[in-house]
């Protein structure tokens, strides 16, 4: 205790309710229908959307709606110990909850029998990759022109040295007491993804989730600015 927060300041110099530096760029890939490059602290993420396109093989098609298929993948060089290429249990779970969070806002009923494929590549990782991935994927979906009720956004809060903090860094994730990543639809504040591990009292949980929502809303502004920057250029 007391290692990670000193005089109210965190290891990387942030206040408890402060986000890491975030940079978002929309429409960065040539082949993809929509794409986004995002840097969030030391995370570097590329997201690409393909579709809606015919779902194949045909037996996976849903005659009432589009399938939303997100794939979260870490590059082998994105972590300190080289990761063997290909999916593992962790990335499979993240892909699943990401697909579900994004499907919640997409008007899938407009595109029966199709699939909307969302590829999230983590190129450099420093804690919080799933939130960064969802945030980038949402911008890529908007860039692809996929009709959505809202542009989803994700952010994590947690507990470090007994203090509820926003947007954990790697040391805080490893040495902290809890991590609580969420994704929301920012206008309605509906919760689209919620995971947590660690130990929080009910009161701390409340505080953490409110802080994460506040953080997500700040990130939401950056997403919209990135889209405006791209589409203003087009006019």
């Amino acid at each position: 205790m007391g290692e990670l927060i000193k005089n109210g300041i965190r290891v990387d110099g942030r206040k408890p309710d402060e986000l890491r530096r975030i940079k978002i760029e929309a429409g960065v890939l040539y082949r993809a229908d929509g794409s986004c490059y995002l840097e969030w602290g030391g995370n570097k993420i590329l997201a690409a959307v393909y579709g809606p396109r015919e779902a194949l093989p045909r037996h996976i098609q849903d005659p009432t709606k589009a399938l939303v298929n997100a794939r979260y993948n870490m590059a082998s060089f994105s972590v300190q110990e080289r990761k063997r290429p290909g999916p593992d249990r962790r990335s499979t779970e993240i892909s699943k909850v990401t697909s579900e969070a994004l499907e919640a806002v997409i008007f899938t009923e407009l595109f029966p029998r199709t699939t909307i494929d969302i590829n999230i590549e983590v190129l450099d990782a420093e804690a919080g990759t799933r939130c960064a991935g969802i945030t980038a994927a949402a911008v890529a979906l908007a860039d692809a022109g996929i009709p959505m009720r809202d542009i989803p956004v994700a952010c994590a809060a947690g507990k470090v040295d007994g203090v509820v903090v926003l947007d954990l860094t790697r040391e805080e994730d490893q040495g902290g007491e809890a991590d609580l990543p969420i994704a929301i639809a920012p206008r309605s504040e509906e919760i689209l993804l919620l995971q947590m591990d660690g130990h929080l009292t009910y009161k701390e949980f409340e505080e953490a989730i409110e802080l994460a929502i506040k953080g997500a809303k700040q990130v939401s502004k950056l997403q919209k600015e990135a889209l405006m920057r791209k589409y203003k250029k087009v006019e």
Binding site: R31, A32, L46, R71, N73, A75, P85, N119, I120, E121
Partner: peptide, 14 residues
């Protein structure tokens, strides 16, 4: 090794 992730082309598959 070379990875051809589906991010890079509509024809690439996981």
């Amino acid at each position: 090794s070379v990875e051809l992730p589906p991010l890079a082309s509509p024809e690439f598959e996981p």
